[in-house]
Design a protein around this nucleic acid. Structure first.
Lengths: 219, 219
DNA sequence: CCGCCTCTGCTGGGATACCAAACTTGTCCG
DNA sequence: CGGACAAGTTTGGTATCCCAGCAGAGGCGG
């Protein structure tokens, strides 16, 4: 169900994914221009799908577009990252608290499975697999939270999240933090969650700020 | 700053506003079809601005679009409204708590001015003016909160908010609730805010659910 | 009489060509 | 050295055309 890929896929969706990956993976630097005509030529499509893709990425907050000029990859300031962290703290705390209050047996089993996959990959040093498993940990949590609107809200921010906080230095430490969250969710211990989730996010915050410093210095 | 209007305005922005108002004000019913060609003809534009507008409204969560078929105005369930209320509670509490922690003298003065305009309009029975002033109360609060990302997050939800919770039965009561919030913000009393903001929102929740019931019965 | 299935019309997704508006940029002049 | 001006770019929008795919109607068979 996940991996059919190009079968009947809309061009605009494909272009969006390519551009988004370019940005998130750093192949397009913050501040660099997104020129519709050039991108269209690169990807062998007309300007239409490119325009839609750029609009989508504007909605996801990783591209800024002023009228009648080129769009650029967004440049985040240290302040933006701080602000984003504050908002993220509130949202994710809500997410895990709801998951704790509303989860089912079956859901916890899936959450544990994701955690175990993440841990195994982290120990094995498989960065990509650990990243994917960690993302699934979040997705399953969103399901358990049983709040569709919360899911939509997170969807709006998830690209920014992947971009700014995508790479975490210490994979094993992150897996350990997920274990603590998993156990608190399973025990429906919301008080503990309200303490450990902010702490968990703070550890990723520093990596993001370090990354920003690195980018700034390379400009 | 608000009211220049049509001067050099982009067509896509204009079309978006027209469609959004149609939906928010109930001129387009939930479930009704949004057919690009028809809307383009109605507004004397080509299909492109209409497509962009529909995409924007999808992003704002008030329109649903499946590939290669018409888009429809979103139909909200009672569950959606409940979920939305839960999320809104967390976001707005955060908003006013930040505003309380970070506001300036000058900002409070503007917030009070907005409140007083709202109260005067509510007492006078001027629904439209009260609605506008209440919206400004929120906008100023977002400024005072000093968190750009939080503003972006709210922007994503504000259309849904206007649509579902737009009309509040008792304008004077809402103004009174805003007075309590204003005073708590000014006094930097975050503990009180964490209590009264959820209570404030709950009072609007019921109106939204009643509205939904009304819509369902009229279908 | 009911349910499935095909078939057709409608609708969006995309390509192409073209034009206007306005933003950038580089140049020239004071 | 700085500002006004002109040329080149780039997006926003219009107008068509075509194709793929969904929805609904109607027919077919049980």
């Amino acid at each position: 169900m996940a991996g059919v890929g190009t079968a009947g896929e809309l061009e605009s969706v494909r272009v969006t994914r390519v551009l988004r990956d370019d940005i998130v993976l750093g192949r397009r630097a913050p501040g660099s221009r997104l020129i519709e005509r050039d991108i269209a030529a690169e990807l062998n499509v007309s300007r239409l799908p490119v325009r839609e893709a750029i609009r989508t990425l504007v909605g996801e907050g990783v591209v800024v577009a002023r009228p009648r000029t080129w769009a650029v990859v967004r440049e985040f300031t240290r302040r933006d990252i701080q602000d984003f962290g504050e908002v993220r703290e509130a949202i994710e705390t809500l997410l895990f608290v709801f998951a704790a209050e509303r989860h089912t047996e079956e859901g916890i089993a899936r959450l544990r499975a994701a955690y175990e996959r993440e841990l195994a990959a982290a120990v094995a040093g498989d960065t990509e697999a650990a990243r994917i498993a960690a993302a699934e940990f979040h997705e399953i949590s969103a399901e358990l939270a049983g709040n569709e609107m919360l899911g939509e809200l997170i969807a709006v921010f998830v690209t920014r999240l992947r971009w700014l906080f995508g790479q975490h230095d210490d994979l094993v430490a992150m897996a350990e933090e997920h274990r603590l969250i998993l156990e608190a969710v399973e025990a429906r211990d919301t008080d503990t969650l309200r303490v450990i989730v902010p702490r968990h996010l703070a550890s990723g915050q520093q990596a993001a700020e370090r990354r920003l410093t690195h980018q700034a210095s390379s400009t």
